[in-house]
């Protein structure tokens, strides 16, 4: 798929790689990121990728503009086109790691589990086994630090957002919004249906990298009980 370029103002280029949520497109974007970060051009600041786009931020003052004939935007596009030409020269794309996310479903940690089950005509156990039965690709990290945009949740457990968002959802909460599932890395207000909570910390500002998950990783949810949750959080047993 050819890269299409769009200016995002005077200091960034957005590259589009096809349309829709697609694992192939995602792998192509990851390969592009590696190439751009591996050979950063003068003035390059950073890359931020999403489902089918990649944004390249640059510092206008740091670019080495060849002359007055070309705008800075055109100059950056031409540098990126050079990189596009070498696409496919990469050795096999390194596949992401598979990370197990222990989740204590239902009860105080997952107050909306019953509601999600009822909406879909299932038992709570069914929802848990469907949610924990699949493998999810981390398409992107955004919205909050370390928040994974995940693909691959079966529609059979989909549930619309709450009409009135909760004022505060604890860090680690696992939720469903429409046909998406996700994990809240930090305490924030939010309208997702909360079905469980993980004891793992997704945002680790003291570590490098600062997040548990990265684009390209796969995750699996593993059901645990409240005792196990407390143990993993380093809390006293009940």
């Amino acid at each position: 798929m050819a890269w299409s370029f769009f200016p995002l103002g005077d200091s960034a280029v957005l590259i589009e790689f096809g349309s829709g949520v697609d694992e192939k497109i995602h792998q192509e974007i990851r390969a592009a990121v590696r190439r751009i970060e591996g050979r950063p051009f003068p003035g390059f600041i950073e890359c931020v990728s999403a489902f089918n786009t990649l944004c390249v931020y640059y510092d206008l003052m740091g670019l080495r503009l060849p002359g007055r004939k070309m705008t800075a935007y055109e100059h950056v596009c031409s540098l990126l086109r050079e990189m596009e030409k070498t696409a496919g020269d990469d050795k096999e794309v390194q596949s992401g790691q598979v990370i197990d996310i222990p989740v204590c479903y239902g009860g105080e940690f997952g107050p909306d589990l019953g509601h999600v089950a009822e909406l879909n005509g299932l038992s709570e156990e069914d929802v848990i086994s469907i949610h924990a039965g699949g493998q999810y690709l981390v398409y992107a990290i955004g919205f909050a630090p370390g928040f994974p945009y995940l693909g691959g949740m079966p529609d059979t457990i989909a549930a619309p957002r709450k009409k009135t968002p909760r004022l505060s959802i604890p860090a680690g909460s696992v939720g469903i919004a429409g046909a998406q599932t996700g994990i809240y890395p930090i305490e924030t207000p939010g309208g997702w249906q909360i079905i469980g909570r993980t004891p793992l910390e997704l945002f680790r500002p003291g570590d490098s990298p600062p997040t548990l998950l990265q684009g390209g990783d796969y995750i699996r949810f593993c059901p645990i009980g409240p005792e196990e949750y407390r143990r993993l959080r380093g809390m006293q047993p009940l």
């Binding site: 995002l8 103002g9 200091s11 960034a12 957005l14 829709g20 949520v21 931020v48 990728s49 999403a50 489902f51 089918n52 786009t53 990649l54 944004c55 931020y57 992107a140 955004g142 919205f143 945009y149």
Partner: peptide, 10 residues
């Protein structure tokens, strides 16, 4: 629209 990157001033 699918979520994508934004910038200062978007």
């Amino acid at each position: 629209y699918l979520s994508e990157a934004v910038a200062l001033g978007t």
